[in-house]
């Protein structure tokens, strides 16, 4: 077994960030263009190409690709209308960008040897903080101090509030954490599992003996997990987007 195989079989190797282009530090920060940035760019380019095509064609009678782009548009619009109402549509471009940024990143991650940008907690954390930041800033700007009614839902006796307000505050603080960790953990765990089972299959065959019996099982598991991971990739993008809508709804209507 050579060194390359060790490296490839290591389930953590796929998450390593490597510099593609070294860039001079800005304010002491290293902002080199990495494989993470490269695959992020790929996702953005594919997203713009796909929806740009659908937009620029703009025929009354669409072809399949244009229709798919328009279905994506309608899907996100309906998602916002369903959770945050018509008023939520002012955030339509943001939610749309968020959903398809994550979806394209997740789907690109499903291609072997590709880097999954959403498997890094710094990325999902930054997106979650962006969402919560918008909720707080917009909520305060639109509702003023009424925004804090979010932590004290009306209609409860006063002594309940002693318990209720801390719980509401904790649940609000937990939102960015859960939002970030759910996506990160799902992508990380899924890709580790895929790599492990694929690795078992290869190692089993090269090891021989009982490994020959284990390898097909591991390979079958890998195939099944692959299907599951495609589902997870779509679902997690959806969950992230719909929770964003739910939180934005709180900013729009804090006194629910």
């Amino acid at each position: 077994m050579n060194l390359f195989f060790h490296k490839v079989a290591d389930p953590m190797h796929q998450f390593e960030v490597q510099k593609w282009f070294e860039l001079p530090p800005v304010f002491g920060y290293d902002i080199s263009f990495t494989n993470a940035a490269g695959f992020m760019l790929l996702g953005v380019v594919l997203c713009i190409a796909f929806f740009g095509y659908a937009a620029s064609r703009g025929k009354i009678v669409p072809n399949r690709l244009q229709s798919m782009g328009e279905i994506g548009y309608g899907f996100v619009a309906d998602m916002i209308r369903g959770t945050a109402g018509e008023e939520g549509l002012r955030f339509f471009p943001f939610v749309f960008t968020l959903f398809f940024f994550i979806l394209f990143a997740n789907m690109i991650g499903m291609v072997p040897y590709a880097f999954t940008t959403t498997s890094h907690v710094i990325v999902t954390g930054a997106l979650a903080m962006l969402v919560i930041g918008i909720v707080i800033v917009f909520g305060l700007w639109k509702n003023g101090l009424k925004f804090f009614k979010l932590f004290a839902p009306s209609g409860a006796p006063w002594y309940i509030y002693i318990l209720l307000i801390p719980i509401e505050i904790i649940s609000f603080v937990a939102r960015p954490l859960t939002l970030a960790l759910r996506l990160f953990a799902n992508m990380l765990a899924g890709h580790i599992m895929l790599k492990l089972f694929a690795g078992f299959a290869v190692t089993g065959i090269t090891a021989g003996g009982i490994g020959l019996a284990v390898a097909p099982l591991a390979f079958g598991m890998g195939v099944a997990l692959n299907a599951l991971e495609f589902l997870v990739a779509g679902l997690q993008a959806y969950v992230f987007a719909i929770l964003t809508c739910v939180y934005l709804n709180d900013a729009l209507h804090p006194a629910h």
Partner: peptide, 20 residues
Amino acid sequence: HFPSQLFWLAVFFGFLYFAL
């Protein structure tokens, strides 16, 4: 890689948002 990740995320996410 955190600074690099955040920087490029801001650039590309911002660009995608702008274009869309």
